[in-house]
Design a protein around this nucleic acid. Structure first.
Lengths: 258, 258
DNA sequence: TTTATTGTGTCACTATGCGATACGACTTAT
DNA sequence: ATAAGTCGTATCGCATAGTGACACAATAAA
């Protein structure tokens, strides 16, 4: 396992300089929105000279903006252009978008499209409503798959051995005081999803939030993605979500591949 | 001019290998959604061996997905994570998002947030409605600034000498049969925007589309961005846009910095 | 002022990326 | 079937391109 990793890095095909450049890009996240040279050095663990050269190159190439006064670097618009290219490359997006918009307009609540990415889900499309907080309204956010409704309902489309392995091996993080850390409970939730075709979670990643999700299946039955609706627990309870939202959600999810 | 460019590239701080790696990423766009090795060679103009190494590195680093069967490369989810980091890095986004959602819900039409990026605008936030076609519903799209309502209204916040220079120098492309290529007409439109604080265009980038935009001004008066609403010419005419949409649009744009 | 910190510029060294080449796996044509 | 062509993969000696230690400059802090 570790050998394989080393193999790849030591492979003569591996270009270390490019890898280092990508480390700079990845140093930016929600808690590092702009970075100075020395901060980049600290975050990447690279030599100061190397960071200087790489950051300069990324700046010249338009991948990093540089404040002339503070000398701090920031992500540039090019990062959105890459997202644009991604959207065209994934054929599911164009099919899902109109249906999600329709669902969003008819129920007036936050609608998301999520995909599996390793042991995380990533939100690929998001249609927020007025009450949606910022982090839940922008694309690209990653969350642990087994802690989310969308993740569990996608896992439920996998062969049982695979999703059971996931519930055993994937890490469990406590995010809210009511995050479920009991792996048996998670397994039970997925087992239910196998039978029902949907999952509902409460207060897992955000307090006072109820999420319901249904899978979009590929030809092999495996989920390509999941449609997820999130509502406030102040205005909904689980029962009402089942009655009012779930039918429309499932209709949407089923309609996307047809 | 050309010297300066050469300078930068020949500067000892410029890391060519990283630059080449970025060329691979940028080879993907709406008409190149997945690329084989040889296609990458053709598009980037690099040596086959170099492309092989760089693509392999990007794959190992998780920046490119590789279909095991066809050996073709595709943008990965990491491209959306970069967008996520961008959104956090731009303080305007968090302030604009809730207001845009509110506007979108109240008028039921497509709402966009656009920024200037060189001589193009880039759509940074998009809230589509049912009728919005795909290209107009995803973020990161770039369009020539002087051909769009959002671009013109932002230019109108610049000193006159600057926006006049832009109307003289920036290229004009014909996109629809009714695209205005007359630079005098464009100048007139911007001059109107200086007085009125808004711009309306019809059929410039997409046929049967009417767009109206208002600027979000920074402390120095220059536009940081523009809020743009696009409607179908089948259901609206310019007069109705002015009466029904413009007031709400301007209220939204003005409210974002307050 | 002095002192500390951070960004920029220089340079000799050699590790690292380069690119020509060969090979194997597939596809297409005859 | 065989052959020719295409495409992805693997190899390797060479020279260049990136390295990292250092010194200097520019701000910020004391």
């Amino acid at each position: 396992m570790l050998d394989k990793h080393l193999d790849k890095k030591q492979n003569s095909l591996f270009v270390g300089t490019l890898s280092k450049g990508l480390r700079l890009l990845r140093a930016f996240d929600e808690s590092h929105t702009s970075l100075s040279l020395t901060e980049l050095v600290a975050l990447t663990g690279l030599e100061k000279s190397a960071v200087q050269r790489l950051a300069h190159t990324l700046h010249v190439e338009g991948m990093l903006d540089k404040d002339p006064a503070t000398r701090r670097f920031r992500p540039s618009h090019a990062w959105l252009e890459l997202a644009y290219a991604y959207y065209w490359s994934d054929p599911l997006i164009a099919r899902a978008m109109p249906k999600l918009v329709e669902l969003s307009r008819s129920i007036g609540e936050t609608v998301n499209l999520a995909q599996i990415s390793g042991d995380h889900i990533i939100y690929v499309l998001r249609l927020p409503n007025q009450r949606t907080h910022f982090a839940a309204s922008i694309v690209g956010r990653r969350l642990p798959a087994i802690a989310t409704a969308a993740g569990r309902v996608m896992l439920a489309t996998w062969p049982q051995a695979e999703w059971e392995a996931a519930t055993n091996e994937w890490p469990v993080h406590v995010v809210t005081p009511r995050t479920v850390t009991d792996r048996d409970a998670i397994r039970q939730d997925i087992a239910d999803a196998v039978r029902n075709g949907y999952t509902i979670t409460s207060n897992q990643m955000i307090l006072n939030e109820i999420s319901v999700a249904a899978p979009i299946r590929g030809i092999d039955g495996r989920a390509l993605a999941a449609v997820q609706v999130s509502v406030s627990a102040h205005s909904f309870d689980v029962e009402r979500v089942k009655q009012e939202i779930l039918p429309l959600l499932q209709e949407t999810a089923n309609g996307i591949l047809a």
